[in-house]
Simulated assay, not measured.
Amino acid sequence: MNNLLESAIELVKSLPESEQEKIALLMIDNLQVSENNNTELNDWDKLSQVLDECQIETGITDLAEQHDHYIHGTPKRAN
């Protein structure tokens, strides 16, 4: 085991158990994603994967249509 990994393990051991569990889940998820990424993806599939990973659920149903209202505070446009 290399020194960086040993240092990381020691830091994780010093955290509360709930935080250790969160880190373990993140590591497992990342390892599974990297295993799944070993297959060759075309550029569109890569873009789709990035978009899926970055999307945020806002609960705002008209965000794209009324983005000026939400970003700049302008009045909402009539549909």
Rank of each mutant, 00 (worst) to 15 (best):
22 K>L: 14
52 D>G: 08
12 V>Y: 02
22 K>V: 14
65 E>K: 13
4 L>F: 08
34 S>P: 00
3 N>D: 10
61 T>V: 06
27 M>W: 02
55 Q>P: 00
64 A>Q: 06
64 A>F: 03
11 L>D: 07
2 N>L: 05
3 N>P: 08
6 E>G: 04
44 W>K: 11
33 V>R: 13
62 D>V: 05
48 S>T: 09
66 Q>N: 08
44 W>Q: 08
42 N>A: 04
44 W>M: 09
76 K>E: 03
15 L>V: 01
24 A>R: 15
7 S>F: 08
62 D>Y: 12
3 N>H: 10
32 Q>Y: 15
39 T>D: 06
42 N>I: 02
70 Y>N: 03
35 E>T: 07
27 M>D: 00
13 K>R: 11
35 E>L: 13
77 R>I: 07
38 N>T: 09
17 E>Y: 01
33 V>I: 05
61 T>M: 04
79 N>E: 03
15 L>R: 05
30 N>A: 12
77 R>H: 07
26 L>T: 05
72 H>Q: 02
36 N>Y: 05
62 D>P: 05
28 I>L: 10
51 L>Q: 15
1 M>Q: 14
44 W>D: 11
37 N>E: 12
58 T>G: 15
25 L>Y: 06
79 N>I: 05
8 A>T: 11
55 Q>E: 15
55 Q>D: 14
47 L>H: 09
8 A>N: 04
31 L>M: 04
15 L>Y: 05
37 N>S: 15
41 L>E: 11
46 K>G: 00
41 L>D: 10
45 D>W: 08
29 D>V: 00
34 S>Y: 08
4 L>S: 03
13 K>F: 00
15 L>M: 14
41 L>H: 12
3 N>W: 03
62 D>H: 07
46 K>H: 06
15 L>Q: 13
73 G>C: 03
55 Q>R: 15
38 N>I: 06
26 L>P: 02
53 E>F: 11
6 E>Y: 00
34 S>W: 02
58 T>R: 10
63 L>T: 00
18 S>W: 05
12 V>S: 03
60 I>A: 14
34 S>F: 06
59 G>S: 10
26 L>E: 14
29 D>I: 01
16 P>H: 08
39 T>V: 13
64 A>W: 01
76 K>Q: 12
35 E>W: 01
29 D>A: 05
78 A>F: 04
34 S>A: 09
8 A>W: 02
78 A>H: 08
61 T>C: 01
64 A>S: 11
58 T>Y: 14
4 L>M: 01
14 S>D: 13
55 Q>C: 12
29 D>F: 02
75 P>R: 12
37 N>F: 11
78 A>C: 03
53 E>I: 11
32 Q>N: 13
61 T>S: 12
13 K>T: 04
11 L>H: 11
59 G>L: 07
51 L>W: 06
14 S>R: 15
34 S>H: 06
70 Y>E: 02
73 G>V: 06
68 D>H: 07
68 D>N: 03
64 A>L: 11
